[in-house]
Write a protein that binds this DNA or RNA. Structure first.
Length: 647
RNA sequence: GCUAGCGUAGCUCAAUUGGUAGAGCUCCGGUUUUGUAAACCGGAGGUUAUGGGUUCAAGUCCCAUCGCUAGCUCCA
């Protein structure tokens, strides 16, 4: 039967007969020359394979062309090989470890390479990229070879690739061991790859270098990781490089300094943030909005201290499960006290301050609570990863019969608040029981099921992160997508069946007996620091008018306009508009440049002869341009309109 | 923490092979009173991150410390 033809189903549903062992290339060619030329791989029953692989049985296939989403991984993984080839040509002593395609905003692939004593610098990257282009130009075919384990070990030995030897030993019995060659370069690899190096085209490049451990194990040798990216065509690659530059321009650390929003403590204490007056104002508006929404949403606002006796953290379990993130104890009256890494134990103590009735539920206690957590020095990053931060925390106490309903409600609340900040796209993720956890499996299952129901009911797609939960309960994480398409994790909703047990929390039920409440932990913005950093980048420093420290800059043209300008600004202030005034002797152009473009204030209002005569100001918006003459009252109305629209 | 790179005025950056630390912007003073993305003149501003070392001589070379940056998850 081995020579009987096979049935191939094409994406349009049509079926064709081919000889057994037909290759993807042959199928593509039989459909059209153009398709064959554009083909990079073939999907066989959903699995991407080399074009040269024979197909031995009936299958549904789709030719993977450059434009197909599946092509990216082919291109990137092949680019990694080509990069490794280039590196080995320049540094023959280089030994290869791993070089996968990855999904990252910046990078599409990397290769971890042991360069011995050689220290690679940024300045070495162009040479590697240039040589890669040469290899692409040479259009060397990628060839797959399946070998026995013994042969594989021999090849690795011949190549003096001792890391590959290590890898070969790890390949499970029964799995194919394959090498891919192009030109004189050989690498142990499962593939698939593009047909030849030339197919990579021009849309790729080398981006940066970093260190990386073998197996992510800090006790092992550190290798040089070289990052690059690849795209179907040159234009997309150029666009990607531009986007990287744009992201750099939006970097909150850059803008934070330029706009005088915040600074970090630097050598006086890493990961600690100073909120300057302008950043402080934005925070004030964030908090104001947050408090109002919570009060309207049925929450109560609470406050708790920064330190507590070690006993509290022992009872809560933090000393067992969170110790590595907590700071060393301080001594107060001979007793060890600890800085809080979380607010929950305090809220539990609040709960326990009196007897609770089933009638009180659900209880929703929210706090902007400042916590301190130890992060490794290398983890710190601007506002996004800090050691001291204010969580917008809340703890909800519910009866078991209220759990599902309450989680649904929280999810709705979270999304509505995030939308107010201009985020529209969300990704939800359910994280389940980790290895290191407290409470029994049964309790975990119950809680996880409740979260799942809420997620299903939300109608939004979600993923599952197996084992990604906190030590005390499963959680739902909400990631938001900013205007550059980057995802950020902010909100988290965590069920907790554990703390109520540990603290022996109870309430009196309808039946007069004691019952155990369920606790829900919830952070919405995550931390004010981190969310502020995300906002700065999302808005590129141009805050919407409801958050902006200054909404308009009022500028005088000449000396004789000063009096009216001052009067107009005073009126605006009285109308609740946040303005700054510039009566300096700069030209109008310079003033506009300073306030509109450098300080990123949305409006400027200019006062000259015409305006004084009309009793109005010439209003200009940074995007909408000249809006004409406005009296202070009209201006206030115009700005108010936009404040309400949150633009 | 680890690897690599970096640290010069508030900011952005200069400073031959080791040979007197400079410029623009910001700031301050003065002139100018200007019509929508940079008016002009002058001044101030530094123990070159810190501490050691090599040298006749160190921003530059060596060592240590501190800080900053990229990364240290995603199948060979």
């Amino acid at each position: 039967m081995s020579d009987s033809p096979i049935q191939i189903t094409l994406p349009d549903g049509s079926q064709r007969e081919y000889p057994r062992g037909v290759t993807g290339r042959e199928i593509a060619l039989s459909i059209g020359k153009k398709l064959a030329k554009a083909a990079l791989g073939i999907q066989v029953d959903g699995l991407v394979q080399d074009l040269s692989r024979p197909i031995e049985a009936d299958a549904s296939v789709a030719i993977v062309t450059r434009e197909a989403p599946e092509a990216l991984e082919l291109l990137r993984h092949s680019a990694a090989h080509i990069m490794a080839d280039a590196v080995k040509r320049i540094y023959p002593e280089a030994r290869l470890w791993k070089g996968p395609a990855i999904q990252d905003e910046r990078y599409g692939f990397y290769y971890d390479i042991d360069l011995g004593e050689k220290k690679l610098g940024k300045e070495d990257l162009p040479a590697i990229e240039m040589l890669m282009r040469k290899i692409v130009k040479a259009d060397l075919p990628f060839e797959r070879k399946v070998v026995s384990r013994a042969e594989a070990l021999k090849t690795a030995e011949r190549l003096e690739e001792q890391f590959k030897t290590r890898t070969i030993h790890r390949i499970p019995e029964g799995e194919d061991i394959s090498f891919y060659d192009h030109g004189d370069f050989t690498d142990l690899c499962t593939g698939p790859h593009i047909p030849s190096t030339g197919k990579l085209g021009e849309g790729f490049g080398v981006l940066s270098i970093a260190g990386a451990y073998i197996d992510d194990d800090a006790s092992q040798r550190m290798l040089t990781r070289i990052y690059g990216n690849a795209f179907p065509d040159k234009a997309t690659w150029e666009a990607h490089k531009k986007a990287l530059e744009e992201a750099l321009k939006r970097d909150h650390r850059r803008l934070g300094k330029d706009l005088d929003l915040y600074s970090s403590m630097g050598e006086f204490g890493g990961g600690l943030i100073l909120w300057h007056p302008k950043g402080g104002f934005v925070r004030h508006k964030m908090e104001e909005f947050w408090r109002n929404e919570h009060l309207a949403g049925g929450y109560d606002l609470v406050y708790s201290p920064h330190i507590a006796k070690a006993d509290l953290w022992a009872t809560s379990g933090h000393l067992d499960f969170y110790k590595e993130s907590m700071y060393a104890p301080m001594e107060v009256d001979g007793q060890p006290y600890l800085l809080k890494p979380m607010n929950c134990p305090f809220h539990v103590m609040m709960y326990k301050s009196t007897r609770r009735s089933y009638r009180e539920f659900p209880m929703r206690w929210a706090e902007l609570g400042t916590v301190y957590r130890y992060e490794g020095a290398g983890m710190l990053h601007g506002l996004l990863r800090v050691r001291g931060f204010t969580q917008d925390d809340a703890h909800l106490f519910v009866r078991p019969d209220q759990l599902e309903e309450e989680i649904k409600r929280v999810l709705d609340f979270v999304l509505s608040i995030l939308r107010a900040f201009g985020f529209e796209d969300f990704h939800l993720e359910l994280s389940t029981q980790p290895e290191k956890s407290v409470g029994g499996d049964e309790i975990w299952e119950t809680a996880t099921a409740a979260l799942k129901v809420a997620l299903d009911d939300s109608g939004i797609d979600y993923g599952v992160d197996e084992g990604g939960g906190a030590f005390y309960g499963p959680k739902i994480d909400v990631k938001i997508k900013d205007c550059l398409g980057r995802f950020w994790q902010c909100s988290t909703i965590q069920a907790d069946f554990n703390l109520p047990d540990r603290f022996d929390m109870t309430y009196t039920g309808e039946d007069g007996k004691k019952h155990r409440p369920i606790m829900i932990h919830r952070a919405l913005l995550g931390s004010l620091e981190r969310f502020f950093g995300i906002l700065i980048e999302h808005y590129a420093g141009v805050f919407p008018l409801w958050l902006a420290p200054k909404q308009v800059a009022v500028l005088s043209v000449g000396e004789r306009h000063e009096a009216f300008t001052e009067k107009a600004q005073a009126e605006l202030t009285a109308l609740g508009i946040r303005s700054e005034m510039d009566l300096g002797s700069d030209k109008v152009g310079a003033k506009v440049r300073k306030h509109l473009w450098q300080e990123k204030i949305q409006f400027v209002a200019v006062v000259g002869d015409k305006e004084v005569e009309a009793g109005k100001l010439a209003l200009r918006h940074r995007v909408d341009g000249d809006l004409g003459l406005f009296s202070p009252g009209e201006m206030a109305a115009e700005i108010q309109k936009r404040v309400e629209a949150r633009t």
